[in-house]
Design a protein around this nucleic acid. Sequence first.
DNA 1: CGACATTTTGAAGTGCTTCAAGAGATGTGG
DNA 2: CCACATCTCTTGAAGCACTTCAAAATGTCG
Lengths: 245, 245
Amino acid sequence: MKATVPVSMASLKAACSQCNLQELCLPFGMSENEIDRLDELVGARRKIKRQHHLYRAGDLFEAIYAIRAGSFKTDVLLEDGREQVTGFQMTGEIIGLDGISTEFHTCNAIALEDSEVCVIPYAKLEELSREVEGLQHQFHKVMSREIVRDHGVMMLLGSMRAEERLAAFLLNMSQRFTARGFSAAEFHLRMTREEIGSYLGLKLETVSRAFSRFQEDGLVAVQQKHIRILSIPGLKKLLHHQPAG
Amino acid sequence: MKATVPVSMASLKAACSQCNLQELCLPFGMSENEIDRLDELVGARRKIKRQHHLYRAGDLFEAIYAIRAGSFKTDVLLEDGREQVTGFQMTGEIIGLDGISTEFHTCNAIALEDSEVCVIPYAKLEELSREVEGLQHQFHKVMSREIVRDHGVMMLLGSMRAEERLAAFLLNMSQRFTARGFSAAEFHLRMTREEIGSYLGLKLETVSRAFSRFQEDGLVAVQQKHIRILSIPGLKKLLHHQPAG
DNA sequence: CGACATTTTGAAGTGCTTCAAGAGATGTGG
DNA sequence: CCACATCTCTTGAAGCACTTCAAAATGTCG
């Protein structure tokens, strides 16, 4: 028998070079050599149980996180208790970028299911991205993509009607599941109607009614959180037609 | 007489080290030495006439811009013609970050008045920020701040009522004018009611009515685009009270 | 000054919310 | 494994905030 180093699951070192999420995550577009250097950067993995916080608004910002397994929501709370969900994050996506601006997190990140993240200490990331051009470039793209995504949400919240918003949401989920090798048509939503509603600027009843309407129209088959899209073109048509035009 | 190099206004070289907007712009928080190095980076200034585009969605991304004078709006257009204004930008603010993600701009930037920007070639920015730690750090903060700002807009669009949105908008403008050394209470809006409405997810008539309501309630004195805030606490109170609570 | 864009205000319409009740799913402890 | 409590989702009916349509007032610019 060979000597083995004791390993605890909780502190298992992450290794980008061995990770099957490379295509979706920070390493995307980097050379093999560059990805090897990422392994110096990424710290331990951390498990987060369903409904638990990865970080909270007000927490000191020290690291960003790559989602290794599971999914999260991020939200902002108003003093009077109103919640705005600002995003849903899936495997390979980077979470925590809001903290860079003030060195404190400005939103909450909550696991929608038992999940696991790779911890990327931010000071180390800045240091390494001064040396590794591909890392720098990729990190900037990740941040910019977040800005572009946010603009899309603003469009949705500011200019679309309820059913358009839900159609856009479903198409977006479908596309992200596809990118992860899952079915584009059939998937399981991890969030409640209320969370979808908060994200879309609607009440949960409105979300539920829109789902029912889509079902009546033969666009999707809905069974609670299980969604089967029957007509992707049908959903897309909803987006491109002005309702009162 | 000394020999002088001919200088055209249009291509006048920008110099961060001499600029009075340092406190608001990219150089904020950088050391004097670091700011001197920024002068290598920042290219020519560019003048943009009122209503003209700084860039358009689909344009190749080559540079980000620091607003030297004037102001801009950014917007996204839907295929059916609907417009969503995603932000209003003032002096010292950085515009164009959306382009990093795909190497093409994803929104339009339009001058609200005759304006001037400093052109910051992006390739050079990445290069220099690998050498100048303060620049790297500051640039990341600028991007993160944009993400945090966008989350605020989502909260506004998704969870607030018309008058709350307008109050939040006015307080935000007031705070930004203050940071620029102008009055917190009295300022001139450069955008139309329709543009404010698009930004806030409201129709222009609703914006106009909310202004009238604020005027009736003695919170602001409105004369077209000229705004005088009579009670900043009064506007703040509108934000923190749940309407149906 | 005259043409045009912008803003204000009123009145009617509508899409989403609120309130309410019941059905269905999920989890826990005995 | 079932019973019970809890959470989630659906659906109906009434209410209301914002939109739409319309017209007049005001401001802006060539």
